[in-house]
Design a binder for these strands. Sequence first.
DNA 1: GTTGAAAAGTGCTGCGA
DNA 2: TCGCAGCACTTTTCAAC
Lengths: 158, 158
Amino acid sequence: MPHKKPQNLEIDNLDIQILSILMKNATTPYTEIAKELIVSGGTIHVRMKKLEEMGVIKGASLEVNPQKLGYDITAFLGIFLEKGSQYNEAVKQLAAVPEIVELHYTTGSYSIFAKIVCHDTNHLREVLNEQIQSVKGIQRTETFISLEESIRRQISLD
Amino acid sequence: MPHKKPQNLEIDNLDIQILSILMKNATTPYTEIAKELIVSGGTIHVRMKKLEEMGVIKGASLEVNPQKLGYDITAFLGIFLEKGSQYNEAVKQLAAVPEIVELHYTTGSYSIFAKIVCHDTNHLREVLNEQIQSVKGIQRTETFISLEESIRRQISLD
DNA sequence: GTTGAAAAGTGCTGCGA
DNA sequence: TCGCAGCACTTTTCAAC
């Protein structure tokens, strides 16, 4: 009796619980997760492999404290473009600015929204004046400097 | 001759190189890093321990694809407070909103700047109306919905 | 501070239920 | 499909340089 391989491309409650634990601490051993969720270590492994194949898991990255590395300024940038159609070209040039850690195409007042990390205010001014304002199509920018990061977390999967 | 323990609380070039590799892929084995930087595995371990003690490394977290988990909307929120002094109280209440993944106290037009992740536009509207607008001290908000996340990376350590 | 190797723990694979 | 057990690999520790 031919039977189509189920593939099981659904995310069930167990998957969510595994992700939930690993999103808090990616170094949690599989055996410990297994103990906590009362399944075997092999099961965790199978689920993780499935989630990776599905593209749910992009990878694991080390979280560093930018301030301890001499990056004291985090700022948000609202960027106005002359024309919305210049977006792709602008992004290409902005990608070459290493201080930009996040960049979005947004609705609302601004065309582009960016997050930027700099050593100090001088560094920020340099990047703004020399790297960003000179990009073709960028009309002007508004800067919001973060004085305090009060919340920083991942989405909760409940 | 009494001699103060050096502690070696400086970050040298080797530390930077180790961090650089692990920030791209936190699952890189120490042995492989050691080979690449031509030092022993034990050295990598000692350095990592030092960096953790110094607080440079906050931890490792799994990066997931929010869209694959049904979170399709990423938005930025500029929040106006009636008085800046209401910040601490507002943060306390906003911390209880799980959809908020980042929150900053900023200079510029807004008092608070937040990043929020929702399932869909309805979910976003619900969170805005029921959870955020009701917080005491919040005057009004401006929403910037991300239509495309073009850049997402860590600071480069060069 | 670094090295190299030994010891402990974890991740992976195949067999059985 | 899941769980168990053995093997390979990584992390950790430690004495010596």
